[in-house]
Design a protein around this nucleic acid. Structure first.
Lengths: 189, 189
DNA sequence: CTCCTATAGTTCGTGCCGAACTATACACAT
DNA sequence: ATGTGTATAGTTCGGCACGAACTATAGGAG
């Protein structure tokens, strides 16, 4: 009961959201689920996925139990306190404005050749788009997705789908934008 | 000459790019210049702007000299080693893929009302767009911009302009995207 | 039963970053 | 000239983030 005071970051809420969906999960489960959903708009490095649940458990937001044999994996689940914190956060209407970290633009600012940068960027968005389109299909019932593997309900799939749909739309737009700048850019304005 | 071994991050290059433009600057100069350019695609909190140059100086990439009177401000400039590192980085064609950190999408994933989130988001992009359009104009010669204050050459202005132009195009597109999702979204696909 | 490779998880050190605080400069009123 | 208010300029601290490198288990194929 005497939980350590910890700071809840967006990454904390990312982990808790997943646990709300999954019910109970090992860090590895979280990692896989993340890669197919949240990862597209909130990056979490894999080491953080292993340390963050430990932190959250110390704060009393997650319960932690360890397997006795084999890999001795840890299983995490939301506590009431965790569920409460998650809802309070999600229901607050204000959010931090989105933040973009774009090394390519930095290089252009530093004098790199825009054409090279934009060409790489175009290819990347194209690949990302293809990846997300595949993910979207697999979320809709095919095998191979985590949704299938974990036997998600229709509702759970929708939650993931909504964000992936936004992702495909986003990359489609960016692809065009980058392409137009690559071709010389809206030079005048 | 015996410089400490430090790791150069994107933030390091952001600082060094600015110093290449400014020639010589105090952390505060850097801060102001950042806000009108790099900040839009690479966030650097203000405390980092004060600590990063110190790190870079320890690594031998910047020279540091301190005023004797008044605020005892520190003046930084690129060393040859810094200029070299900057060029090597900018000239390497590959960049890290852009990373988006979007708390609003996280909330939607966690079950928040999309309409609320997208409405806030729309307003934010609108404000950002207006801000960047103003910045673009002021970069083109008006008073009040850092370009004017520091008496930038046409070339220096262009460097800043290129990224700001991309920024305006970006926010214009996002504004539309968000608006369409707000209105119910491309529901089917 | 041993080697291979994929899967699963940890450690460490440096860098990042927000909150809170401190200090200087300058304008203008008393 | 002295106070007082506000914008400007800079620092400290502690917790969190994150990449590199490493370790360990599982499930094959031979």
């Amino acid at each position: 009961m005497k939980s350590k005071q910890i700071r809840l970051t967006s990454t904390s809420y990312a982990v808790m959201s997943l646990l709300e969906l999954l019910g109970e999960a090992t860090p590895y489960d979280l990692k896989r689920a993340l890669e197919q959903s949240i990862e597209n708009f909130w990056h979490v490095p894999h080491t953080t996925i292993y340390t963050e649940p430990t932190r959250l458990a110390a704060g009393g937001f997650l319960s932690e139990q360890q397997e006795s044999g084999g890999r001795r994996r840890k299983l995490y689940a939301l506590t009431d306190s965790g569920r409460e914190a998650l809802r309070a956060w999600a229901d607050a209407p204000e959010s931090e404005p989105p933040e973009l970290r774009d090394e390519g633009m930095l290089k252009i600012f530093a004098g790199a050749d825009p054409h090279t940068i934009f060409t790489n960027r175009r290819d990347w968005h194209q690949a990302k788009l293809t990846e997300l389109e595949g993910l979207l299909e697999s979320l809709r019932g095919a095998e191979g997705s985590i949704a299938h593997e974990l036997d998600w309900t229709a509702e759970q799939r929708q939650s993931a789908e909504a964000t992936v749909r936004f992702g495909t739309a986003y990359h489609r737009l960016l692809l065009e934008l980058v392409e137009s700048f690559r071709a010389g850019g809206p030079a005048g304005s």
